[in-house]
Simulated assay, not measured.
Amino acid sequence: MAGTGRTTRPPSGGRTQPVEGALRAALEVIDEAVLICDRELHVVWANRAALRHVGNRLDSADRLLPELCPEWAAAVILDEALPLLATGQAGTSWRGDSALCRFDGGETPMSLRLQSIAGGLLVAAFRCRVEVTDTAPVGGVATMVAEITHELRTPLTGVLGMAELLRETDLSPEQRELMEALHHSASHLRGLVDGLLELSRLEAGRVELVTAEWRPKQLLGELDAEFTPRFRAKGLILATALDHAVPRKIVGDVFRLRQVLTNLLANALKFSTRGTVRLAVDRDQDQLRFQVIDQGIGIPPEALTRLFTPFRQADPAVARNYGGSGLGLAICKRLVELMGGAISVESAPGRGSIFTVSIPLQPG
């Protein structure tokens, strides 16, 4: 559930569908937790970021927005925000401090903006609050990076959304070439901004795991469905294997685990030109082990020690030929360590690579 938006409203038809699709896609990739509510504050839609925070608490069709917040934040919404928005006039908004409840019973401090929109609906946009202290200069730098990259991400999302809309229009060959170049450059820049934002949060200790029960078989199926078309388009094969010793249900942060595996599979796809990439899951005593095995270009021994360092890639020439910011594996390492695990690599030039992720096994 943590990977898809939730809605109880069918999409409208006609010419507005491309626009609505682009807007929905934009909402799904932003960092703010966005929920759409009716006038009685029933949640009718939530983006991916919101689902990462509230998870299966939205399984109920009658879930109210204040029920997702701690008592004090719910009181602020009901006593301060709701009376201001009661007129129903589109564009009316309220801003203030709030919080969302976590699975472990704690709360995540948030800034909340509630705004009336057309159709008698309300948009609730929660953004993680960043705490700045003068006694921690390193944290101050991390805060500055996080704030700058966050502010960059919003207009970049708008640029990409507009590029998607342009793709739906009649363009001359020259215009389409320019538009595709614009989209490619904006996508690359957003990837860099996303990486910087994620790394700054990890370095500052502001990334919290959200633990819930998940199924390894389902995770592998979702990754296979996502990546198989991309592998086939490049003439490659993606094979997945789940050992019978792996429990059917496991407790952990499947969103962050999927983020790590997605990065490793994307790298295997990028650096492979032939053969099969294998994603295998097995149990090693009290550890859950994932391996991504490819037949790609491989990594020279002298580059292995810096592979998980931010902005460092195995070879500058590789960076020029294949692209990338050099942040992905650094983020993977920190996420895996946050989960109490470890990540390692075995590789040699021309012989491919084996990336291994091991995390503590917590059966569900």
Rank of each mutant, 00 (worst) to 15 (best):
A266P: 02
L209I: 09
L236Q: 07
P229I: 00
F231N: 08
F255A: 15
V210P: 00
V193I: 12
A233Y: 08
R232F: 04
R256V: 09
V193H: 05
D194Q: 10
A225D: 09
V246H: 11
R201T: 00
P247T: 10
I250Y: 02
R215M: 06
G195A: 12
F255D: 13
R230V: 08
R230I: 02
R258F: 03
P216T: 07
P229S: 06
D243V: 05
V251R: 14
A245D: 15
D243I: 07
K217C: 10
R201F: 09
N263D: 14
V193G: 03
I237K: 14
D253G: 03
D194I: 03
T262F: 08
D224V: 04
A266Y: 07
A241G: 12
A225M: 01
E226Y: 10
D194A: 11
P247S: 10
L192S: 08
A204I: 01
A233C: 11
L265K: 01
A241W: 00
V260A: 04
Q259R: 13
V260P: 00
D243M: 08
L264G: 09
L265S: 01
W214Y: 03
A239N: 07
D243Y: 10
L220E: 11
T240M: 01
D253W: 05
V193R: 03
R258K: 15
W214Q: 11
A239C: 06
D253Y: 04
V207K: 05
G221S: 09
G235Y: 10
D224A: 13
I250L: 14
A212M: 11
A233W: 04
L199G: 03
K217H: 13
K234N: 08
L189N: 05
A266V: 06
A266N: 09
E222P: 02
R215I: 02
L265A: 06
H244E: 15
Q218L: 15
P229M: 05
L189C: 12
L261I: 10
E222Y: 05
F231T: 03
R248V: 12
G235V: 08
T228R: 12
H244K: 13
R206A: 10
E208Q: 11
A225V: 10
D253H: 05
E208P: 00
N263F: 09
R201M: 07
G191P: 01
A204G: 03
I237C: 11
G252M: 02
S200G: 13
H188R: 14
G205A: 00
R232M: 12
L257H: 07
S187I: 00
K234T: 04
S200Q: 06
P216D: 07
S187M: 05
L242W: 01
E222S: 09
R248P: 04
A233G: 10
Q218K: 15
E208N: 08
D194R: 05
I250V: 15
P229N: 01
T211P: 00
N263T: 15
R215G: 01
G195S: 10
T211K: 12
R248I: 08
T262A: 08
H188S: 14
N267S: 12
V210W: 04
N263S: 15
G205H: 00
L261S: 00
